[in-house]
Design a protein around this nucleic acid. Structure first.
Lengths: 210, 210
DNA sequence: CAATTTTTTGACCGATTGGACAAACGTTAG
DNA sequence: CTAACGTTTGTCCAATCGGTCAAAAAATTG
């Protein structure tokens, strides 16, 4: 079975596939799967449509490859959440990392959001499999923190959801955020403001009652 | 200029337009604008495509009418945020109302999310106009609460974003929430769990330091 | 060099799509 | 009855789309 990696591929194939995936990320994240055309992706990749179809036989293959890579990137910050260090510090860095991803990889975030919004038709198995397992595992870590009184007792699942929602908001709803903040407050500083606010919200909101 | 209301329309026209808009909400929110076809909407509305086009001349007209109505519904909870009552109570009810909207009107939420994700091509003026004005106004209310020491000093804009993000998450990312929670925890009770968690998070997170 | 394989492209195809249109249908008023 | 008006539908069209194919062009190999 052919892996999604570079097994049995020539140098040109490896390079061109990367160019195509980069172009597809741009187009898909801006227009959604059905809203994007192969022609658009081909043009963004600087090649003709039949040429693109020489590297990916179907439009859906591009999307699938993109989604598989995406999920790994997306789960990485949560994987790093460990119960080695101080709980509050761990949570703070997790929020930081997620917010940095929203800032540095907004296209990936929007691609993911688009897929979920449409009911996750192509990645549902991954959500119920990898994602759920990972969350279950981290929920146990958080529960441990709560039991030992390091953070306030609350619902660990919804805590994770809240971190996801608030951080990804700055990528997925970027145009709205910028429209509301206006030209002066909507500059590059908005991510630092957001980081400060979210840190206060979550750390104060989870401070254990003495 | 024809208003979007029922001026100069027959009884049948008013009724059928409502049926079409209801069907279009269902289809658009599930597939996005470009992912939806007039045929799908017509079938969901129980009529033929030419018949539908008799009531709305273009696909975009349906979407536009839907979006205009939507924004009013969407802003209503924020409009109710007043500095009459106790700040903490006001905030709690605002979060409640937003969460209830995510629960009761998920299609509207997803339609809106879809539009924003695509860069808000059709409602940008409304975001920079009505929405921004309303937020600016409520930011002042919140600033007043902070000045008088009723809630902790923090960034009012990002507080509003956080409330939006966390509540709408349960509509927009519903499939992910359900996949992660699993069959047992993902039932109808998830909204009550979310309400409890969000209340704790925001109210504790914003408690003024004595 | 020639032979072979990989890469690129122009032309094309069938299906789907948004939308136009005229004819038919139904209802009501005179 | 007829005329007028609102409603509904079958048929059609041009544009767009995902994808095929054969043949040319380029790169690789012996």
């Amino acid at each position: 079975m052919e892996g999604s990696t570079s097994r049995g591929r020539t140098r040109i194939q490896k390079e061109k596939r990367e160019v195509i995936l980069e172009a597809a990320l741009e187009v898909f994240s801006a227009n959604g799967f059905r809203g994007s055309t192969i022609d658009q992706i081909a043009e963004a990749a600087g090649m003709s449509k039949p040429n693109l179809l020489y590297y990916f036989r179907r439009k859906e293959d591009i999307h699938e490859t993109l989604m598989h890579r995406l999920l790994d990137t997306w789960l990485a910050p949560l994987k790093e959440l460990d119960n080695i260090g101080d709980p509050m510090t761990e949570l703070r860095s997790y929020i930081r990392r997620k917010l940095e991803m929203a800032r540095d990889y907004p296209r990936e975030s929007r691609l993911f959001a688009n897929e979920i919004l449409q009911g996750a038709p192509r990645i549902m198995p991954m959500l119920e499999g990898e994602l759920k397992s990972l969350v279950d595992e981290k929920v146990e870590v958080i529960k441990g923190w709560m039991r030992s009184g390091k953070i306030a007792k609350t619902d660990p699942w919804h805590l994770i959801f809240a971190i996801w929602a608030t951080t990804q908001h700055y990528a997925d709803f970027d145009v709205q955020v910028r429209a509301v903040l206006g030209p002066d407050r909507g500059g590059d500083g908005r991510f630092e403001d957001a980081a400060r606010f979210l840190e206060q919200l979550f750390l104060e909101g989870l401070r254990p009652k003495s």
